[in-house]
Design a protein around this nucleic acid. Structure first.
Lengths: 216, 216
DNA sequence: ACGTTAATTTACTCATCAGTATAGTAGTTA
DNA sequence: TAACTACTATACTGATGAGTAAATTAACGT
């Protein structure tokens, strides 16, 4: 390539070095988070040292500290990604129209799917005592937000008659428990696909254990 | 009291010093376990030092080591008590007669109740990476045993028609998730009694979310 | 070429906490 | 009273791991 072929003023690349760098940085941050989440899920938060994470990425610990303030921030970002995924699914479900039951079903399916993924699993396995004071508050805030969405969709369904009546708060906990628990037992390398698990779990919750149409 | 009233050979007390001591020892062991379980539940296992536990009992760390080999043994004993409670409830439910559905309902109620208590909460909050190699195996063993009981009662109900058909393994996970989750949100000082929560959660699982008698 | 900034390393510090060595005390037995 | 055992405390060791200081290299803009 001959430089005479270019005009004197160099064309600003849309992938200018500034943005490039920033993108690189984000990619690296994400890699750290994903790796960390997998370690946390496999060995637990406290049993995972940042040296483990660094080694898995073939770098050293201070490199990680170049991207994150501390271990707490890493854990929080992991659970944030998981929780925001669920929250977004909840918002999408609410906007989607249909009966309360339809919306709840969509929400639960999405929720269940996230529970089979790295950051979703991390959410269920993280208890707030593992986070620092600030993160703990935001963690609780996000969880409460999701619980409120869930509860409100359930209430809507009870109101429009598409769901049976009951204590919406308690029903929400029951649903959340069943869905969250997926993260504890599901193995991606097992026989069932995530979709099958999600579908089937939602179905069980919706229809209950007693035979359909059974008197009571 | 006059010693001449007693025959020359002293009567061996059933509360002889030997047995007395042993009983004292058990009481102290239990106090340690209960205190430890509460700390574990409130702050997490790793965030709880044995000095914390000792201080709460107004003794020092080496005293605890006089009753337990190590921290791992303490955690394991806590979860063992919780898990054996559930297992015993499962066995009792199986022996109790009635349809599969009746037995499942009894089992779930008991299970739910245990999930509102110290050692039961400890079970749900403990992940096996927190235990040593040996304890981890026994922990998993006990959990599997419970899962098997649960699954077999569900299968029995499906077979005798008192429960709707489905994938028993997956249904068992759904049930276990909803029940285990109680330990995460239930607060004894809240509005609902443990009995109410247990009853209501079981009811939701049994009847499902859709209105009864709904077509589909 | 030159200074600046991002990225990464080696080699540390520092705190925490599980677990122990050792010694002292109280009650029991002979 | 002497020896023994159970129990508890003081004062330590040792390992682990979070987080940092400082030096090094690579990349970029001017």
């Amino acid at each position: 390539m001959n430089s005479t072929m270019l005009s004197s003023t160099k064309i600003e690349s849309p992938w200018g070095s500034r943005a490039d760098r920033e993108a690189e940085r984000q990619i690296k941050r994400e890699a750290v988070l994903r790796t960390a989440a997998r370690f946390f899920n496999a060995q637990g938060f406290h049993a995972t040292s940042l040296e483990d994470v660094a080694a898995a990425l073939a770098v050293t610990k201070p490199t990680i500290y170049h991207y994150f303030r501390n271990k707490d921030e890493i854990l929080f970002e992991c659970v944030r990604l998981g929780l925001e995924g669920i929250r977004d699914a909840a918002c999408a479900a609410e906007d989607r129209g249909g009966t309360g039951r339809d919306r709840l079903e969509a929400l639960m399916r999405q929720y269940a799917m996230i529970m089979t993924q790295d950051f979703g699993i991390c959410v269920t396995r993280t208890s707030d005592d593992q986070l620092g004071e600030q993160s703990r508050l935001r963690f609780r805030e996000l969880k409460r937000e999701i619980h409120n969405h869930l509860q409100s969709v359930i209430k809507a369904g009870m109101a429009d008659g598409s769901l049976g009546n009951g204590n919406a708060r308690l029903v929400a906990f029951t649903v959340a428990g069943a869905l969250n628990w997926i993260a504890r037992w599901y193995r991606p390398d097992g026989e069932m696909s995530a979709e099958t698990v999600a579908h089937s779990t939602v179905d069980t919750l919706m229809r209950g254990l007693v035979p359909q149409g059974a008197s009571r």
